[in-house]
Amino acid sequence: MSSYVKRVGDLTEPVELSASQIAEKMTSTVDTGFDPVTKPAHYAGHTGIECKQAMESMLGTDEYVSYMQGCAFKYLWRWKSKNGIEDLKKAHECIENMLEALEGGAS
């Protein structure tokens, strides 16, 4: 198993959670730490794994970085016409995600 998978979480051995544990994780994930730019509630999984972590695990680092590059471009392209400064912050977050992936989680 690559160090990459260990970095984002070993998804090969699922952990069984009780209904109450799942409910607790859903509540804590959605209600705490919500930020529309860096941690939107609608990207939190019921197990506490964020969408971007699952995506990087599924795609691999190179493809994940390419995807984040495309997202950053999208936010930079539309910022004046759609969400203004929030889109610039989202582009910045995408670039931070790229750096973190490329640096192995060191940033």
Rank of each mutant, 00 (worst) to 15 (best):
M1F: 01
V15D: 04
T32E: 03
G84E: 04
H42M: 05
S57H: 11
G48T: 09
L59M: 11
T32F: 12
R7Y: 02
M58I: 09
L99P: 03
S3F: 05
Y67M: 12
E96L: 09
E50M: 11
P14Y: 03
I22A: 12
W79N: 08
G105V: 04
A91D: 02
M1P: 07
I22N: 01
S18Y: 06
K52G: 00
I95E: 02
Q53T: 08
C51R: 14
L88W: 00
L99F: 14
Y43L: 12
E50L: 09
T12H: 08
L11N: 09
E103Y: 00
M55A: 12
R78P: 02
D31Y: 08
M58T: 09
D10E: 07
A44W: 00
E13T: 09
L102M: 14
S18G: 15
Y43R: 10
K6H: 15
P40G: 08
Q53P: 01
Y67W: 09
L11M: 11
A91T: 03
F34Q: 07
C71D: 01
G33I: 07
E100G: 14
T61R: 10
S66R: 07
V8Q: 00
D31W: 06
K74H: 08
S18D: 06
H42I: 10
L11E: 11
C71F: 05
Y75C: 09
K74E: 06
G60V: 01
G60F: 00
G45C: 07
A106F: 02
G104V: 06
T27H: 15
K80V: 13
T29N: 11
T29F: 06
E50N: 11
G70E: 05
N97R: 13
W77L: 12
E86H: 13
D31Q: 09
T32N: 15
H42L: 07
E13R: 14
T38V: 09
Y43E: 10
H92T: 01
A54S: 14
